[in-house]
């Protein structure tokens, strides 16, 4: 049984600013990180590996420098790390991306081992669409379990999984047959820290790269050509100007009261 974790290299958004003239992200010199939600997907895959002894593959679609992301996955203990990289994959929206990722998962299924579970972060912090995971599930015909915050039960031989989904104000326990695709939230687990010997081994390891000659996908359905989404504009919304209430230094109590009154008036305090 193989578990596939889909991970993405994203710019460290806390360090990203938007160019006020062009309304595009200023990516120059911004360090890349592994999409934080994906680190939880990867961690859960590794925990299942620790528990059941199955194998884990990490896949990522991106430019050649996304190899760094996969090396991090190798340092954490994945068995296979595959970078899906080709110029023709570039400019993809979620539809085209899920097409490439699904093809890679199919290939892993036929070349490596039967895929039982695909794990994705609930969304990426750069695109924030939360569509790629579900896109993969529907293309592969897998059960789709989104917003998972706990795997309640996992039965590989009986091919059943039961998870808890974190919804607004409640949890939903759902059972589904395998194979399944899970998108996960941060509460699922605490990602492990890489051990140095593994980091050193990962630094020396080569990440397998699959381009479209390997996947042989219809170029009309991948990359920019296969992406019907069109981004018309990105902009930073104007931030409402704040208001200074009282003087916290000379009269902290009075100022606090003014603040509470304001919040009550706007119905922003739970009573």
């Amino acid at each position: 049984m193989l578990i596939v974790a889909c991970i993405k290299q994203v710019p460290d958004t806390t360090q990203v600013q938007i160019d006020p003239v062009t309304n595009t992200l200023i990516r120059d010199g911004i360090p890349f990180i592994v999409n934080p939600y994906d680190t939880h997907a990867l961690e859960e895959a590794l925990r299942l590996k620790d528990r059941f002894g199955c194998r884990v593959a990490a896949i990522s679609m991106g430019p050649p420098n996304a190899e760094a992301t996969l090396k991090k996955a190798l340092a954490l203990g994945v068995d296979h790390a595959i970078l899906l990289s080709d110029r023709v994959f570039g400019g993809a929206d979620t539809l085209a991306t899920s097409n490439v990722l699904s093809a890679a998962i199919r290939k892993l299924h036929s070349d490596v081992d039967e895929v039982g579970l695909v794990l994705c972060g609930k969304q990426t912090i750069d695109g924030d669409t939360a569509q790629v995971g579900p896109g993969i599930a529907s293309r592969l015909g897998y059960q789709q379990l989104t917003l998972v915050d706990r795997i309640v039960d996992m039965n590989f031989s009986g091919k059943i999984i039961r998870v808890s989904r974190k919804l607004e104000g409640r949890h939903e326990i759902v059972e589904a047959p395998l194979p399944a695709m899970l998108t996960v939230v941060r509460e699922l687990n605490r990602p492990r820290y890489p051990k140095v010997p593994m980091r050193l081994a990962a630094a020396d390891a080569t990440v397998e790269v699959w381009n479209n000659q390997v996947l042989k996908l219809d170029e009309q359905k991948i990359g920019l050509k296969g992406s019907p989404t069109w981004v018309s504009k990105i902009f930073s919304p104007d931030r409402a100007v704040g208001e200074i209430l009282g003087d916290g230094n000379s009269d902290p109590e009075g100022t606090a009261e003014m603040l509470i009154e304001k919040l009550l008036a706007k119905d922003m305090l739970p009573i």
């Binding site: 605490r190 990602p191 492990r192 820290y193 890489p194 051990k195 140095v196 010997p197």
Partner: peptide, 16 residues
């Protein structure tokens, strides 16, 4: 503990 075992008090994970 840190380098070979990745075993440390959990509040250090964020720090690292």
């Amino acid at each position: 503990l840190v380098e070979s075992e990745a075993s440390f008090p959990e509040e250090l994970l964020n720090l690292f």
